[in-house]
């Protein structure tokens, strides 16, 4: 039983509205707090003023050119990972599925590390990651084959094996790289928002993905009940599966290209939201996007400020915040489940 158990048939509509208002307001305030904090603290009031009027000055530059791109792309990446994770879990019919399970981040990492070890930066890093992610996406699709239905278990096994292959290549690259480049490589592997560019384009990708996922959310609810049942109720199961596979993969690829592979969000956020509101994908998917975005912006804020002027890999923080919060949630729902 979910903690709040918000659903679309017996919960009054205003509660659904409140839920999303709370999420949106939290997202805005987390964003403002993240903009305000850093090596040069800027008062909240000034942050708002800068956002609205954009006056000239050093603080304005810091906020508009350095922090705002980082905060927006943090939100977008977090949202993408959470959405991709929720979709992968339904697609693979496996609660342990997460965006990286099919090797997309592994493929991206191999080519990004290759770019770093060749001394190429910037555009080449992004291009390499993009190529690796897309290559993996098509490899998994082709090797799974069509055959008699697009079997989730076969997709999972194909993906896991390809991911293991990339993992070996990553270790190989790390082993033969000079020490001077290792630091950069490890940061890329653990996920890092410091290369982020303005997240505008990616925001559109996320928005489009949310709209598409919402359009299919009722069909996804049926898919969670069972393939045959979904088909008997009118869902074209194979087509939907392949579509969801590509949607989740593209989201993962877009997230990895922006920020490397940030762990934990794609696995835990969908489960945390499930524990809170239940399994209806019409609410679960958009709520996960908000929650993932909020967590990553918050974690990145801490990553920048905790050990100032040192920056921590944000993936470390997402796990450090997420683990206790999730365990607490699990405990409190477990207590309510007793008859």
């Amino acid at each position: 039983m979910a903690l709040l158990n918000i659903n679309l048939h017996s919960t009054p509509r205003y509660k659904v509205v409140i839920l999303f208002t709370v999420l949106a307001v939290t997202a805005v305030f987390t964003g403002l707090a993240a903009l305000a904090s850093g090596s040069v603290p800027v008062p909240l009031r000034e942050v708002v003023d800068i956002l609205v009027r954009q006056p000239p000055g050093i603080n304005s530059q810091i906020i508009m050119d350095l922090r705002l791109p980082r905060v927006t792309s943090g939100f977008v990446v977090g949202g993408m990972l959470a959405l991709a994770g929720a979709l992968m879990q339904i697609l693979l019919r496996n609660p342990l599925a997460e965006p990286y399970i099919l090797g997309i981040s592994g493929g991206a990492s191999v080519f990004a590390l290759l770019a770093i070890s060749l001394g190429l930066g910037g555009v080449w890093l992004t291009l390499g990651a993009c190529f690796g992610a897309l290559l993996t996406m098509f490899m998994v699709f082709v090797f799974t084959g069509s055959g008699a239905g697009w079997n989730p278990l076969k997709v999972l096994l194909t993906g896991v094996v390809i991911a293991a292959g990339w993992g070996a290549l990553i270790s190989f690259l790390l082993a033969i790289s000079p020490a001077a480049k290792l630091h950069n490589m490890l940061f890329w592997l653990m996920g890092d928002l410091s290369f982020s560019q303005p997240g505008g384009r990616y925001f559109l990708v996320l928005l489009l993905a949310v709209i598409l996922a919402m359009y299919y959310s009722r069909a996804l609810n049926l898919l969670a009940v069972g393939d045959l049942q979904a088909a008997a109720l009118g869902v074209s199961v194979n087509r939907l599966r392949i579509f969801i596979y590509f949607l989740a993969s593209i989201l993962t690829a877009a997230a990895v290209i922006q920020a490397g592979s940030i762990g934990f969000i794609g696995l835990i956020i969908p489960h945390a939201v499930r524990l809170l509101i239940g399994n209806d994908n019409r609410l679960l998917l958009p709520a996960s996007v908000f929650a993932g975005g909020i967590l990553l912006v918050f974690a990145d804020m801490l990553a920048r400020t905790l050990l100032e002027p040192r920056q921590l890999p944000v993936g470390v923080l997402t796990a450090l915040i997420g683990v206790p919060v999730f365990l607490l949630l699990l405990q409190s729902t477990g207590a309510r489940q007793k008859p």
């Binding site: 158990n5 659903n7 609660p95 969670a224 239940g278 399994n279 209806d280």
Partner: peptide, 8 residues
């Protein structure tokens, strides 16, 4: 895998 309520 992801159970819903009876009503849902």
């Amino acid at each position: 895998t992801f159970p819903a309520t009876v009503k849902e």
